[in-house]
Amino acid sequence: MGAPRKLAGALLRAVLRLAPPESRDWALAMLRELDFIAGEWAALLWAIGSTAAILRHAASGWRIWLRGKSNKEAGMNSTGKKALGVGLGMLSALALVGCAFAVLRIAGIVFPALEHSPWAYWLAVLAIPEAVFVIATVMLWRKRGPVAAGILATGLVMALHVAVHLTLHW
């Protein structure tokens, strides 16, 4: 027995040991066929192809398992999931506002004239983020309702904050 065939056998035996139960019969079937393959290199190619096939089979099993688990979790704890979605939406919105402030600061350093320009300030920290919030809310409303609600809530709080600020100072 040559080295390629030995390697092929070792590879398929390792696959057989590591394969999940639902793929094990198939891995064993591929290993048994190895004895009937005439060429040394053909045996190795057979083993490599078989390994790929088992990996794909096992991966599809894991995908089904994960999907089933997430559906189960959704059924058991949908309130928690919704709260998590809203929190994620709010965090994303706040992160965007933070980024807008950071961009404004950097722009102020690079272009000092912008630092004293009120329109740049309102554009960067209010107009653009609010526009992004509205677009994101519309786009996410159907598929990721809680996240969209979180973004919308943050946008409304920000708009309210600006309205109060303007009322008090102007």
Partner: peptide, 16 residues
Amino acid sequence: GYDLSRVTGLKSGTLY
């Protein structure tokens, strides 16, 4: 399996 592979010309990674 191997006979099917020879008849169809498919590699094990495609056939299985």
